[in-house]
Amino acid sequence: MGWVNTHTRELFDGYYSLDITYELLLGGYYPTGINANSNYVARDLAALGLILSPQPPTDPLKVVWKTIWSAKVPGKVALNAWRIAANILPTRRNLSLKGYDGDTGCVLCSHDPEDSLHLFINCPYASDIWSKAGLQWSVNGAASMHECLLATLPRLNKEEVNKTLMLRWGIWKNRNSQVWEQKSKHASETFLITLGWYEDVKRSNASPVVRCRQGVKLVKPRAGQFKMNCDGAYIPSTRRGGVGCVSRNSEGEFLAGASRPHALLTSPFHAELLALKEGLRLAMTLQYTEITFESDCALLVQAFQQEDQDLSTMCLLIYKHASGES
C-alpha cells in the first residue's frame, strides 16, 4: 500500500487527515484494476466533488436582498435601501471608521454616534415618521441594522415594504439637506411629501387607460348665474408659467378677466391649480354668489371631486393652496 500512501499524501496532505483519506479511498470507492504504475488515486467523482468543492455558505441576508430588489419603488430608493442593508451608507459612524474625525453625533437629534440603526429606527425624527405611517419597529435590542432588517422585513406585506423603503429614502434625503444646506423639514412634511411621491409612482406604473377624445360642448350657465373659465400654462425648461381666467354671464358675454405670471412651478397641474385659485379671487372680488368654475384639466376636476384620502403631489398642492399658502 506504499503507492497509495504516496499518492494520497500528494493529493490530500495539508487538506484532510490521512485517516479520512484512507476511509474514502479504501472504502470500496477506488477503481478496480488500479496498479502501481498509476499516477493518480481516484474514487467516485460525485463523492470526491463534495469533499473538494463543498456547498457555498448561505447568505443570511438573502431574503433581505430579494425583498429590496423586488420592491415596486424607484431605482434610487431601492439602491438607498441596499446601501443601508450593506452598511455602506456614509453615516457619521461609518465615516469615522474611514478617518473622519469630526462630530459623530446624529444630524437630526445629536445622539452619538449616528449609525444606520439610530438614524432610521431609534432617532425621534424617524420614530415620528413611522408612527404617522402606522409602522412600529420592535427591534428587541437589535445591535445592528442587519439584525433589525432580518427581524422586520420578512414580516411586512409588499405595500408595507414599499412604504418602508420610500420613507427611509425620505429620512436620508432630509438628513442630507440638513448637512449640506442647513435645511430640515418637519417629520410630518417629510412623511407627506415622500408618500405623495410614492402615490405618483404607483399611478405612473399602473396600466394605462385608453381614453377616446370626444368633443366638448360648452354649456351656458342658467339665467342669473355666472361661469368662470380658468387655464394655466407651464414651460418645463424654466419652470415658469402663467394663469388666466375669464368670467361670463348666462348670455356668454365677457364680464371680467385676470391674468398673472408665476415662477417656480412644479408641473402643468400646478399651473392649472393656480389658475383656479386666480378665478376664485376674481369671483370673490366681483362678489358672485352663484358661479360655475370650468377647467380643461381633468386631473384637477377629479382631484376636487374624489372623496378618498389622497397623498399624491397633486392633492398636497391643493391642501397647500387651500390653507392660504402662496
Rank of each mutant, 00 (worst) to 15 (best):
R168G: 02
G170L: 09
G170Q: 02
G170D: 06
I171S: 05
W172K: 04
K173E: 03
K173A: 14
N174R: 09
N174G: 01
N174M: 01
R175V: 07
S177W: 08
W180V: 00
W180R: 02
Q182N: 15
K183F: 06
K183N: 07
H186L: 11
S188V: 10
E189P: 00
E189V: 14
E189Y: 13
E189W: 02
T190A: 08
T190R: 05
F191G: 09
L192K: 12
L192D: 13
L192A: 15
I193G: 01
I193N: 08
I193Y: 04
T194N: 00
L195P: 12
Y198W: 12
E199K: 07
D200A: 05
D200V: 03
V201S: 02
K202N: 06
R203N: 12
S204H: 08
S204C: 07
S204F: 03
S204W: 02
N205W: 13
A206M: 07
S207L: 15
P208L: 06
P208K: 12
P208A: 14
R211Q: 15
C212W: 02
C212M: 10
R213D: 10
R213W: 05
Q214P: 00
Q214H: 11
V216E: 05
V216N: 10
V216M: 06
L218P: 00
L218Q: 05
V219D: 07
V219F: 09
V219K: 10
K220G: 00
K220S: 08
R222K: 09
A223G: 09
G224R: 09
G224S: 07
Q225F: 14
Q225V: 02
F226Y: 15
K227H: 01
K227D: 00
M228V: 15
M228N: 11
C230H: 07
D231W: 10
A233Y: 09
A233V: 13
Y234S: 11
I235N: 12
P236H: 06
P236C: 06
S237Y: 03
T238D: 06
T238P: 02
R239D: 05
G241W: 01
V243S: 09
G244M: 03
G244N: 01
C245Y: 01
S247I: 13
N249V: 01
E251S: 11
E251K: 12
F254Q: 08
F254I: 03
G257M: 06
G257P: 07
A258F: 06
A258V: 13
S259A: 14
R260N: 11
P261G: 14
P261S: 10
H262N: 11
L264A: 13
L265K: 01
T266D: 04
S267M: 05
P268N: 15
F269G: 12
H270E: 04
H270Y: 08
A271V: 13
A271Y: 12
L273V: 11
L273M: 05
A275H: 09
L276C: 13
K277D: 10
E278I: 09
E278G: 10
G279V: 08
L280T: 04
L280W: 13
L280G: 01
M284L: 14
T285V: 15
E290G: 04
I291P: 04
I291D: 10
F293K: 02
F293G: 06
S295I: 02
D296N: 12
C297V: 08
C297N: 11
C297M: 08
A298W: 00
L300G: 14
L300E: 13
V301D: 02
Q302K: 13
Q302Y: 03
F304Y: 13
F304K: 04
Q305T: 07
Q306A: 13
Q306C: 12
E307N: 10
E307M: 04
